[in-house]
């Protein structure tokens, strides 16, 4: 009994500290990554999705609130910023390829970003979603910080946009290979480009893990589509308010 009580005391102490949550996150990720490799890269076992589910199961199982978990996990979260800056390096090492494809890149970023916004709007209206939910959905294919900024600007709900954006990224990363195979898109550059444009950083991470060349085109598409999407959506809303 005293042993159990002491163990409980240790647990109470540890779960209040960042170390425990940091270790749990890394452990779950290694487990998910191993599982993914063991299943020969089966798309639905996407390591990010599996890690998120494992960690969430632990939190819900032990009744831990997200703020406490994030207090530890924020050290991992912080690295997202530096990692974004670091994406300059693969673009630099493949610079001649990117430069040679600059016109296809520009045209495809404009067309793809516009299509992503249009299809989202069309589907959301067809499914009868509320106006504020539609506004939160519109910027979903771009990286979370840009998407949240856009949602805020047009009267959506930024926290809802964060959820939707991450879900979009995981969908693209998990289904990407299958969907691109079905559409018989074989060019490594085009596969990476589509992943980066449709599912931002999470899609780019997937492309990068597969092939550095795909990763480069994903990073380029992600960066440019973020800027272009912000411009397209603010232009549309500006025109709408001018006309009405």
């Amino acid at each position: 009994m005293t042993d159990a009580a002491r163990l409980y005391e240790v647990w109470v102490y540890l779960q209040a500290e960042p170390l425990f949550w940091l270790t749990l996150t890394l452990g779950c990720y290694l487990l998910a990554d191993g599982l993914y490799r063991a299943a020969r890269l089966f798309p639905l076992l996407n390591p990010v999705a599996v890690t998120i589910l494992l960690v969430s199961a632990v939190l819900v199982g032990f009744g831990i609130d997200y703020e406490r978990y994030f207090n530890g996990a924020k050290f991992i979260h912080f690295l997202l910023g530096p990692a974004t800056v670091a994406l300059a390096v693969p673009i630099y090492t493949h610079w001649s390829t990117v430069r040679a494809a600059r016109w296809p890149i520009m045209v495809a970023v404009l067309a793809g970003s516009f299509f992503a916004i249009a299809i989202t709007w069309g589907l959301a209206v067809a499914l009868g979603l509320e106006a504020s939910t539609i506004k939160s959905l519109l910027p979903r294919s771009v990286t979370a910080p840009i998407a949240m900024g856009i949602a805020d600007m047009i009267g959506g709900v930024p926290s809802l946009t964060a959820i939707i954006t991450i879900a979009t990224g995981i969908t693209g990363a998990a289904l990407g290979r299958f969907v691109l195979d079905m559409a018989s898109i074989r060019s490594t550059a085009a596969r990476g480009f589509a992943l980066g444009l449709a599912s931002h950083g999470i899609g780019t991470a997937r492309a990068m893990a597969k092939d550095p060349k795909a990763g480069v085109f994903a990073a380029v598409a992600m960066g440019l589509s973020g800027v272009v999407t912000a411009m397209i959506i603010s232009l549309i809303f500006h025109l709408l308010t001018v006309m009405i």
Partner: peptide
């Protein structure tokens, strides 16, 4: 940069967990 980008997916886990819980 190579070290940072090798496990880029891991960095999305904290925010992703928040998504599930919200």
């Amino acid at each position: 940069s190579g070290h940072l980008l090798n496990h880029l997916s891991l960095l999305f886990v904290p925010i992703g967990v928040g998504v599930i819980l919200h």
